[in-house]
Design a protein around this nucleic acid. Structure first.
Lengths: 174, 174
DNA sequence: AGCTGTCAACCAACCAGTTAGTTAGAGTGG
DNA sequence: CCACTCTAACTAACTGGTTGGTTGACAGCT
């Protein structure tokens, strides 16, 4: 047996991510997370305090990852939507986790980091509009909402393709 | 005391609708439904078999209602999106119930009635395209997906307005 | 020895579902 | 109009299994 606190925390976080993405907060089972992580249930409480707090850690990690990996390209919003679409296809966890979070904790329970990242993106778009690189028939805030929302088209219609999302954003921006 | 089976079923269904919309399937509590309906828990099992089956009844009723109330206007898709937006604002229950259903039962667990209604709408749009009333740079199926998805913009950005949705669909169609 | 990571076993609260029994009220016969 | 019965709506209390959370002991490392 190896005794590595950080490695155990990592395994627990990974198992928790999968569990919460699949079953939500209310449906997730702490015993199942421990079992799938190959660790003991008590460790969850030693390292993460409670089920709710573990969920928060999972969401925070996923959101941070998403923000760090994807930077907005205000002058190419269709391309940005395409990259978002790809990310959701590769990591469906994020979309599901945010879905559960919204439904369970209300619609304005957004993680702090996401609010800041959102504000930055709006600023970037507004700047691009001022520079004439992006048309201004939509307010920067509105534009970002539309682009992000269209990139999760797969959420309401599972047959939606990347190409469709890109073309749709193209018409919104163009 | 009045003894009216149908009235009691109605009260249970109403309480269940609110409960499931708020907490989801896993989070909903059968005792709470009974209490809020002013009825006994055992009646839920006498009238609706199980918690899961009660959820199905609730979803079916809400979907049927939505389908019966709102007919598509293929030649005015922005207006249709606006009406959908209004409906979701007035009855947030439907959107939340469908959200829980999607997350808990998988993305292709759509009620039978909704699948049929969807096919009818696609046919109506395709007909309008053939008649030249709707441009065909998007396939009818794609167009419907986009319109419906944009109408639930409020799901991902709570500050979204009706006007924004209508304008966005206008650009998609136009 | 002493500190730390780990775990089996445990607990109280909770929850979906059941049951044995109670009661409102419609029907019936006088 | 009354007394009686029968049925179906209704209920309080219970059950068996589950769940989030705890604890005291054990094992590995310095």
């Amino acid at each position: 047996m190896v005794r590595d606190k950080e490695a155990t925390k990592r395994k627990l976080l990974d198992a928790a991510t999968a569990e919460f993405a699949t079953y939500g907060i209310a449906g997730a089972r702490v015993d199942r997370i421990a079992k799938n992580a190959g660790a003991n249930k008590a460790l969850i409480y030693a390292y993460f305090c409670s089920k709710e707090h573990l969920f928060e850690m999972v969401v925070q990690e996923q959101v941070d990852l998403a923000i760090r990996t994807l930077t907005i390209t205000p002058e190419d919003l269709p391309g940005y939507a395409g990259k978002l679409f790809d990310r959701y296809l590769e990591h469906p966890q994020l979309l599901r986790l945010m879905g559960w979070l919204r439904l369970e904790n209300g619609f304005d329970a957004m993680p702090e980091a996401e609010i800041r990242a959102h504000a930055d993106k709006v600023a970037a778009i507004r700047e691009a509009q001022r520079a004439g690189a992006v048309p201004d028939h939509f307010d920067a805030e509105e534009l970002l909402s539309l682009v992000v929302h269209l990139s999760i088209l797969g959420f309401s219609s599972p047959t939606a393709t990347r190409d469709l999302v890109v073309r749709a954003v193209g018409r919104i921006v163009g």
